[in-house]
Amino acid sequence: MTAPLLTRQQHCPRPALRLLGTLPFTQARLHEGCGPARHSLAALLIGATRGPVLWITPAWATDRLNPEGACPLTGPDNGPDRLLFATPQRREDLLWCMEEALRSGATPLVIADLPAPPGLTPVRRLHLAAEEGATRGHHRPLGLILTPGNGGAPGVESRWHMAPAHDLDTDRWHLERRRARDAPPAAWHLSGQPGAWALKQT
């Protein structure tokens, strides 16, 4: 007898990190951040986690994250001492470092600032590494790749685009969920500061 295609069992949502208390980022999976404010998106995710964060960036990159400069987005309880930096010399080592970090489960968030979106096979390997890390480490690691332009890495769990929309008196951003396995595309205006964020769907 074959198993029925439909059952009455409830669907159990997968564990997720809630960015700004609302926006779900499924844990033990790989997500993509793109757009001119993608580093700000990464800083917001850092503020939503607890524990060390690994930030991977090419050794040849000229624009690197200033940990103290990220504090206005991560919040006062998330000092620069939480950030660990890896700067591989070779392009192929960027994803290797990320894969090994996710597989260890030693940190809740692994961020890789990439010069271009990876292909489908590396993305699948990173998903598998994050899932393995959730079973062997202290955390259910979330992977975030930062890609230039509009991104486009195939097979990611979700893709987010963030761009500045500041005016004279207010820091404001436009945040879009362009792709997600468990949620439709959507967009928001974000303003405020840690502990007092205002998120308005557009």
Rank of each mutant, 00 (worst) to 15 (best):
D171M: 12
P194C: 03
N150L: 11
F85Q: 07
A153F: 02
P117D: 04
A43P: 08
Q9P: 00
A112P: 11
P24Y: 14
T107A: 15
G33M: 12
Q10T: 12
P164F: 04
N150M: 09
Q193P: 01
A86K: 04
P15D: 11
T147D: 12
T170Y: 03
G35M: 01
A28C: 01
A130N: 10
A116W: 03
T22V: 01
P117I: 04
H138G: 06
T202F: 05
L6R: 14
F85W: 10
P13F: 11
P194Q: 02
R125W: 09
L102P: 09
K200V: 15
M98P: 06
L190S: 04
L41M: 14
R179I: 02
P52S: 13
L109N: 07
L102Q: 12
P80W: 02
V156T: 14
P72W: 06
L199W: 07
P184K: 14
A153P: 04
L20S: 08
T74E: 06
S104V: 03
A48N: 03
P164Y: 03
A129I: 02
P72D: 10
P13K: 10
R64S: 08
A187G: 15
A43L: 10
E131I: 02
L30M: 14
A180P: 01
S158I: 00
H174L: 09
Q193W: 13
A112C: 15
P72L: 10
H39K: 06
Q9W: 07
G21M: 03
E131N: 02
E100F: 07
A163N: 07
S40E: 14
Q89W: 11
K200I: 13
L44I: 06
W160M: 04
R8L: 15
E131C: 12
G155C: 03
T57Q: 15
L168G: 12
P88T: 03
R103W: 07
L94S: 07
R38Q: 11
R103D: 09
L144F: 04
T147I: 11
V53M: 09
A116E: 15
F85S: 08
A198M: 13
L120C: 05
A101L: 12
L109Q: 10
Q201H: 08
R91E: 15
I111M: 12
M1S: 15
L144W: 04
G155P: 05
T170I: 10
R125D: 07
L199V: 03
L83A: 07
V123C: 15
A165P: 01
V123M: 15
E132V: 05
L102D: 05
R29P: 00
G35I: 01
R178S: 00
Q9G: 08
H127M: 03
G75S: 07
A130M: 09
A86N: 09
S104K: 08
D167V: 04
N66P: 01
H11G: 01
G35E: 06
T135I: 01
G152T: 10
H138I: 00
L84E: 09
Q89C: 08
W160G: 00
V156M: 12
H189L: 07
W197Q: 02
A187N: 11
